[in-house]
Structure formats: structure tokens, C-alpha cells
């Protein structure tokens, strides 16, 4: 029954938080600082719109967000120039903590945001959302502002284009429904209540983020959920329905790569948690196939889900934040 209670108490709709003036009052009362991080890689087509909407609505009209930062993986297009022209703070991930050996992946950008940004809460929003709206930020941060015990808020999107009255299925994308939810149901049944565990939009308290290790690739969201669950339990999570998200659709082959990376992270967590006793050394090569002139060809892809350690183990971070090493 835990899941039902959690679903009832910790699942929100963004419209519950549309009184932004009240949200700002509450934020100021708690003296919170909030940062918005948009990780990018070749997002020149959508990044400008995200920046102006968040800046205009959540900084100028309602000072809910204190900083907007673009952390880029090294875009070859005009992403950083566009972002700069709209007034955002822009960073190359490789320029942050330059003494560490560089790694490339979305998780790397998210991890380095913890070092670079100042917020007590960091909101992460993907850069490829075509129907971006301020709700993508305030809908996620609001449960953290109003409920002290909530530490990690995940987005989900539940506005089907057409449905009849009554019961209808609700859930995530293809990878969630055929991989993540079955795995969670097997190993962490309570986590199956998170409707879209892979969504790229979430808001988290710094005190939680700095304790998490970060896979730099596909596994970052899955790892977060498992690690936060183990440390704080289901009640630390909340989820907010943001209605609809219009974005690029991924090919099935790309989803295969994603699933492969997530599985590496997942098995690593199972092993660390002593949930699986015997595990052979896992291959890092994903094999996919294509037909070339009636001949079948193998495509081998080496996908290694490397992880960054918790930020609290990085001396530069401790120094910057004035934290004494225990």
C-alpha cells in the first residue's frame, strides 16, 4: 500500500503551483537559492526559446530562479553563441574542474553543474523541448519549496492526444516500459511508482546531489533514483505532471544504446547492494545489425558507463563550498 499512499501524496500536477507570487514568497522566506541547468549538445534550434522563457517568466516577472546556466559538451553547431546572445551563462563542461581527466556525456554536464552553480536546489531541464514553458521549472521546484521532506522531484508527462472517459494506461516511453519498470518491479518494487524515471527534467536539493555518484552517459537518471531511494526511501521523491513534452523522437537503435548503458549502471547497483551474488564480467560492446546489399553486417559499439564520484569527494568542491573534510 506504500505505493498507493505515495502516489496520492507525492504526485502533483503543475497547475497546483501556478501561483508563482506565493512560490517566490515561500522561497524567499526559506532564503533558498535556485539554479537552472540546461545541459546541451548541438541544440541551437531550441536553446534560445528555453532561455528567454525561463528568464522572462522566472527571473524578470517572478524571481524564482537565481541563475540559468548552459553546460555544453562541446557542440559543433551554434548552441553556445545562441545561448550567449540570449544572455545565459554558458560553460563548456571541459572548462569546469579542468584538472580532472575530461569525460564526455550528459551526466558529466549534470555533475559539473553541482560544482559550477550556486543553488541550494538545482533544476535540470533538457534542451530539446519544443513546447518549453515555465511550468517545466516551477512545477518541479515547487514541491521542494513547499515540502521540506521531499528531496528529488521528477517530471512526467501525461496528456494523451485523445482518450475516452474512464481507465487508460499511463506511463513512460519505450525504454521505461520494456526495461526500467520491469527491472524496478523485480528489484525495487516501490520505484515502479515513478511514472517516468528516465525523464530529463528534475529538481534536486544540493545536499542530495553532492552525495550522488554520476554515470556520465545513459544511466545517470536510473542511478540517481536507485541511490536516492537507498539513502532516503520513497518518501524523498515526488513527481509532477507537466502535461506534454514535444521533442525529437529517437530511433529504436538509439534506444538500444540507451538500454545497454542503463543495464550496465543497473547491474553495477545490484552488485554494490549485494542483490546479485554472482555476476560475470560484463561486456561493454553492444552489437546491432544492418543489411548492406543483402549482406548482414554487425555494428559494434563500445559503450562504457563511467561514473563520476560524489562531488563531496572532490577537494576543489569542498574548498569552493567551504566544507571541511571529515
Amino acid at each position: 500500500m506504500k505505493i498507493e499512499t505515495w502516489l496520492k501524496n507525492n504526485t502533483f500536477h503543475h497547475s497546483s503551483f501556478s501561483d508563482l507570487a506565493d512560490l517566490v514568497r515561500e522561497k524567499e522566506k526559506q532564503n533558498l537559492k535556485i539554479s537552472l541547468c540546461i545541459p546541451t549538445l548541438n541544440e541551437e534550434r531550441t536553446i534560445g526559446k528555453e532561455i528567454i522563457l525561463f528568464h522572462s517568466e522566472l527571473m524578470v516577472r517572478y524571481p524564482l530562479i537565481d541563475e540559468i546556466a548552459i553546460i555544453d559538451s562541446g557542440s559543433s553547431d551554434n548552441t553556445l553563441n545562441v545561448a550567449r546572445s540570449f544572455g545565459a551563462d554558458t560553460y563548456l563542461a571541459s572548462d569546469i574542474l579542468p584538472n580532472l581527466p575530461p569525460k564526455k556525456g550528459k551526466g558529466e554536464n549534470l555533475w559539473k553543474a553541482i560544482y559550477q552553480l550556486e543553488g541550494d536546489i538545482i533544476i535540470y531541464v533538457d534542451a530539446d523541448i519544443k513546447n518549453i514553458h515555465p511550468r517545466f521549472a516551477y512545477g518541479l521546484v515547487a514541491p521542494l519549496i513547499y515540502r521540506e521532506e521531499i528531496k528529488y522531484v521528477k517530471a512526467f508527462y501525461d496528456r494523451p492526444l485523445a482518450f475516452s472517459e474512464g481507465i487508460r494506461p499511463s506511463g513512460g516511453g519505450r525504454v521505461t516500459e520494456i526495461l526500467i519498470r520491469p527491472l524496478f518491479s523485480l528489484f525495487f518494487p516501490e520505484l515502479s511508482a515513478i511514472i517516468q524515471p528516465l525523464s530529463g527534467e528534475y529538481a534536486v536539493r544540493r545536499e542530495v546531489l553532492e552525495k550522488l555518484s554520476f554515470p556520465i552517459g545513459y544511466g545517470v537518471e536510473t542511478a540517481h533514483i536507485i541511490d536516492v531511494y537507498r539513502e532516503y526511501g520513497l518518501d524523498a521523491f515526488a513527481q509532477t505532471d507537466l502535461d506534454q513534452r514535444v521533442h525529437r523522437n529517437q530511433e529504436t537503435r538509439s534506444l538500444g544504446k540507451m538500454a545497454f548503458g542503463i543495464l550496465q549502471t543497473f547491474f553495477r547497483r545490484l552488485k554494490e547492494g549485494n542483490m546479485i551474488s554472482e555476476l560475470p564480467e560484463l561486456s561493454t560492446v553492444l552489437r546491432q545489425f544492418q543489411v548492406h546489399d543483402k549482406e548482414f553486417e554487425t555494428i559494434n559499439m563500445d559503450i562504457r558507463e563511467e561514473e563520476r564520484p560524489p562531488m563531496l569527494s572532490i577537494p576543489e568542491y569542498l574548498k569552493k563550498r567551504g566544507i571541511k573534510k571529515k
Partner: peptide
């Protein structure tokens, strides 16, 4: 930003 945001929204 405010003007463009109104146009978008």
C-alpha cells in the same frame, strides 16, 4: 525577453 516570451506563449 518579455516581448518574445509573450509572442511564444
Amino acid at each position: 525577453d518579455v516581448i518574445l516570451t509573450n509572442i511564444v506563449m
